[in-house]
């Protein structure tokens, strides 16, 4: 199935833009390419990689629903990224181009390969890398505090991610030696939301993701993330503290009942 989809993408990006598949979700397929959609190939673009996120046409739905939905979702994600990029301190991928009629988003490629073959620099692999020798080292603690900080900024500004797993947090080398800057990626399910429930669910999904892949150290890891998160709210004085308390309370509730509301018959 992915060959057919890749075939579709190749048809309109043309052979000028070589693409490599890197992941396939329910809704979108993600490729990398070394070619920028409009900047000329020169020193600034040579050696760079870019992300193409493509929402394929779904045969099962009526064509008018399919076209409208693909366009709406592509624009929605682009719009969200645009708004988020205006938030001071929040780090999200740069929007490079928006090709709505084809359901394509061109985004900045973030991250790199971790040393010792540990894989791509998302939070999941990063924690795996440190699990063997130094799970509680300073760099791990600092990074997780920053992860919490990013989520805190997101929520404080009333946005939710919608799919906050440790694969959707990418680490980029920072200027500080040995330092990493977490960036949130993949806002396909993200939205504007001031609801405590949605934010609680965001935190819960990440907590579960960390627990399931790093169960031994999860308690400490999650505590650091929440610490970094809380600091954002605490800087906002009384109002911030109040909101934080409400949010953490709801988070605990979500944890207890497991994400879902009780059913009605």
């Amino acid at each position: 199935m992915s060959e057919e989809i890749t075939g579709q993408v190749r048809t309109y990006v043309t052979d000028n833009i070589p693409i490599t598949l890197i992941s396939q979700g329910a809704e979108a397929v993600v490729y990398t390419t070394p070619i920028h959609p409009y900047l000329p190939i020169d020193d600034s673009t040579k050696g760079e990689k870019y992300i193409i996120k493509y929402r394929p046409h779904k045969r099962y739905r009526h064509p008018s629903i399919d076209q409208a939905l693909t366009k709406h979702r592509t624009v929605g994600e682009a719009r969200l990224l645009s708004k988020l990029s205006q938030i001071e301190g929040l780090q999200v991928p740069k929007l490079i181009a928006c090709d709505v009629y084809n359901g394509c988003l061109w985004l900045e490629f973030l991250g790199q390969d971790l040393p010792q073959g540990a894989g791509f620099s998302n939070l999941k692999n990063f924690l795996w890398m440190h699990a063997a020798n130094d799970p509680y080292s300073n760099v791990v603690r600092e990074t997780l505090l920053k992860v919490g900080h990013q989520i805190g900024l997101l929520h404080w500004n009333n946005y939710t991610h919608g799919d906050l797993t440790s694969s959707n947090i990418v680490l980029v080398r920072s200027q500080i030696v040995d330092g990493w800057e977490p960036h949130l990626i993949d806002f396909g399910l993200g939205s504007v939301s001031s609801m405590v429930e949605d934010k609680g669910v965001d935190l819960y999904v990440l907590e579960r993701a960390i627990m399931s892949t790093h169960s031994e150290f999860a308690d400490k890891y999650n505590a650091w993330i929440i610490e970094g998160f809380s600091n954002v709210y605490k800087l906002q004085g009384k109002a911030g503290q109040k909101k934080l308390d409400e949010l953490l309370k709801r988070f605990a509730e979500v944890r207890m009942r497991g994400r879902k509301r009780t059913m009605i018959g």
Partner: peptide
């Protein structure tokens, strides 16, 4: 704070892509 040229450019590019959508 004064916006750097990079961040200004980024904001402008966003606006260009989202116009009318």
């Amino acid at each position: 704070q004064p916006q750097s040229r990079e961040s200004l450019s980024r904001a402008v590019v966003n606006a260009i892509h989202l116009r009318g959508l």
